[in-house]
Design a protein around this nucleic acid. Structure first.
Length: 676
DNA sequence: CCGCGGAGTGTTTTT
DNA sequence: CACTCCGCGG
């Protein structure tokens, strides 16, 4: 106990010691909330609480893993604490209890593009694919329906705010939403939202809720400012019986509004329970005051209600945050890489440094520069490799082995085959849907007669693949191997750049080989997708250096580094141009900036480049509006590294006075040896 | 009915 | 500028 008191400040200590009843912890950036949770888990277990009865819900799998690993170092029993994301927890529970809702516990998860595909199928059924009127596309429909589910608002309300020009389709989309829901139930599909919707529904069943409350006596939810209405409801329901719940969050770091999260959740929490204890962690242990000043002054400039002002506990300071301007992104990338190497040479390993950005695409020039310099890096956020067409193709071949009714997967597989288009694939899929098992599909649907016209000749390979797939359905690694054997020729047909794409499949192979259950592999891919692997650097990376982190700001949440580079601080990138017409959205962007800045412990480098290209033409980039304010700029050390200068060639004399050597025809002759 | 080629469009953040 | 949708030829 004395030990705890020494390791924690009074607020943290209070949070750790308060085990029973509802607790709200408002924790500013860098205030040691991870530490508080870590020690709270530890303290609970040492006080005799069974680790299995603790549930730790976090926003990303990375976060929960990190927390539990740290606690496990002190006490190995911490490993038995249950935790994960809301989605993965819901999946786990639904596997066990789906039958209570009348659903099958053998369901497949639809990721976003699968869901869009499914919605498209329903849209065709409902007649929402209009030729004359410009009807919304499948991705738009998916997004509207999902937002309406997550925010608990009507389709009309969502359209009003996000897609007013599609207002005339409101009734049809409302109908589509119903159709889509029915479709998923019928086909044993769940999309991401369903996991939460059905989890909540389950918790509303008294018997189930009591059972789960008996098991999970203590609930903790981290990053609560990023939960949406459904996740909030799930949290209340989980604690309804015993009220032992601690939520931790920071309204100034709410950055997932686009997904329906609301910092109102955190404000409303104390009202949901009597005698909710509120603990505030204010002191910042992470960053220097100079860095915090930048963060503070950006929030100051918003007309919002963040009362918090971060105060550093650290007194020493390394250097003032620096703002640098460059001519173009290549100069920016080159300077950053040079700086990273400089810091490394001073003894700061690259793995204590990170480069953060608003959108993944702005990191591409930097990635090129890093590879050129042989620096290992790892990218978080942005396009996931499991979302790429080739990975989805291959996974489809594994999905149908698990769930014969997965018509989206069947359809995907079939259209890969030459001679089979949408229509034929529809017909075959329909036939498959009437079969009870994979064996039936092989024996009946693919029985060899040519009821599917000229494409039938190409189906025998599929049949052969499925035959061998049946025999190794229990072994994800082997299934992967035979699926690749079958898919590789198709992939070479489909993609010119298959030799690059095959790297992702190799990653997939390594992952698949680690699983001994197909179902778990596929679920993890949908719900807790692995990050893209460490980028392999040419021949020999120097003695297995841990990689540099490149990350979207969203994915950097909760993490910290000694030195942070925040790049592309251009108005239209951060804040994103999508946010510009809504005050509310711009505020969220400013919180994003705040999150980014507060990741840095000692050094912060802000940068932008002036030469932008939008839609083909170059334009002059303006500095992010968040920086362009006296109180922010005042706290920065500014360097104009490359002024946006004119192209030096312009200063050369032009060709006046030099006689032409070629005309067009003689030039052609000179170059090609031919006259036109 | 497949598949190719041209036109057009919108381009973020994540489970 | 990459991807999707549409229209046409085979």
């Amino acid at each position: 106990m004395e030990d705890l008191k020494r390791k924690l400040n009074p607020s943290q200590y209070e949070a750790v010691r308060t085990m029973d009843g509802p607790v709200l912890v408002i924790a500013g950036a860098g205030s040691g909330k991870t530490r508080a949770i870590e020690y709270r888990v530890l303290h609970m277990i040492e006080s005799g609480i069974r680790p299995e009865s603790i549930l730790l819900l976090t926003f990303t799998r990375k976060a929960s893993h990190e927390m539990l690993t740290r606690a496990t170092k002190h006490d190995s029993r911490c490993r038995r604490v249950d935790g994960g994301t809301f989605h993965s927890f819901a999946f786990k529970i639904l596997k066990k209890y789906a039958k209570v809702l009348g659903l099958s516990n053998l369901f497949s998860i639809l990721d976003e593009s699968d869901a869009a595909e499914a919605i498209h199928r329903c849209a065709v059924k409902v007649g929402l694919v209009n030729k004359d009127k410009k009807s919304p596309k499948k991705d738009t429909l998916r997004s509207v329906i999902s937002m309406s589910v997550n925010k608990g608002l009507s389709i009309v309300a969502i359209l009003e705010k996000e897609y007013p020009h599609f207002m005339e389709f409101a009734k049809e989309i409302e109908a589509l939403k119903g159709e889509y829901t029915a479709y998923k139930i019928h086909k044993n599909y769940m999309d991401y939202d369903d996991l939460l919707v059905y989890m909540k529904l389950l918790l509303e069943v008294d018997e189930v809720r009591k059972k789960l409350s008996d098991k999970y006596r203590y609930v903790m939810v981290d990053e609560y400012q990023d939960t949406n209405m459904l996740q909030g409801d799930i949290s209340y329901l989980l604690a309804k019986e015993h009220k032992n719940i601690m939520i931790v969050g920071d309204d100034a770091q709410s950055i997932y509004g686009f997904r329906g999260s609301s910092h109102k959740n955190i404000m409303d929490f104390p009202g949901k329970f009597d005698n909710c204890r509120i603990i505030t962690l204010e002191e910042n242990y992470r960053s220097t005051q100079e860095i915090l000043d930048v963060a503070n002054s950006v929030l100051e400039n918003m007309d919002n209600k963040y009362s918090k002002c971060l105060m550093a506990t650290r007194k020493e300071s390394v250097e003032k945050p620096k703002l640098s301007f460059f001519k173009n992104v290549y100069d920016e990338a080159a300077w950053i890489v040079a700086k990273i190497k400089e810091l490394r040479d001073e003894g700061l390993d690259v793995h204590h440094q990170a480069v953060l950005f608003r959108s993944a695409y702005v990191s591409i020039p930097l990635q090129a520069e890093l590879s050129k310099n042989g620096i290992q890096y790892q990218v978080f956020g942005g396009l996931k490799f499991y979302e790429t067409a080739h990975v989805k193709d291959l996974l489809a071949h594994m999905k149908v082995v698990l769930n014969v009714k997965d018509e989206i997967a069947w359809h995907r597989m079939l259209t890969l085959i030459e001679g089979i288009g949408t229509k034929t694939a529809d017909r075959i899929t329909e036939d498959i849907m009437a079969k009870a098992s994979l064996e039936d599909v092989i024996g009946k649907t693919l029985s060899g007669n040519d009821k599917f016209g000229k494409s039938s000749g190409n189906l025998w390979k599929l049949k052969a693949f499925l035959k061998s797939a049946v025999s190794c359905r229990a072994l994800p690694g082997s299934l992967y191997d035979i699926a690749l054997d079958y898919y590789l020729p198709l992939m070479k047909e489909k993609f010119d750049d298959w030799h690059i794409r095959i790297n992702d499949l190799e990653t997939l192979r390594q992952i698949a080989a680690r699983y001994d259950e197909l179902e778990q592999l596929l679920a993890d891919f949908a719900i807790e997708p692995p990050d893209r692997g460490v980028w392999k650097v040419e021949p020999s990376a120097k003695h297995e250096e841990k990689p540099l982190t490149l990350s979207t700001i969203h994915s950097s949440k909760g993490l910290e580094w000694d030195s942070v580079f925040l790049i592309s601080l251009v108005d239209g990138v951060l804040p994103s141009s999508f946010a510009l017409d809504s005050e509310e959205d711009i505020e969220e962007e400013s919180r994003l900036f705040y999150v980014a800045v507060t990741r840095a412990k000692n050094r912060l480098f802000l940068s932008m480049s002036h030469e932008g290209s939008r839609g083909g033409i170059t334009q002059f980039n303006k500095i992010s509006r968040f920086l362009d304010a006296p109180n922010v700029l005042g706290g920065l050390d500014q360097k104009v590294i490359f002024e946006p200068i004119e192209d030096p060639d312009i200063d050369l004399d032009d060709s006046d006075g030099i006689m032409p050597v070629y005309d067009k025809n003689s030039l052609l002759k000179r170059v090609t040896g031919r006259y036109s």
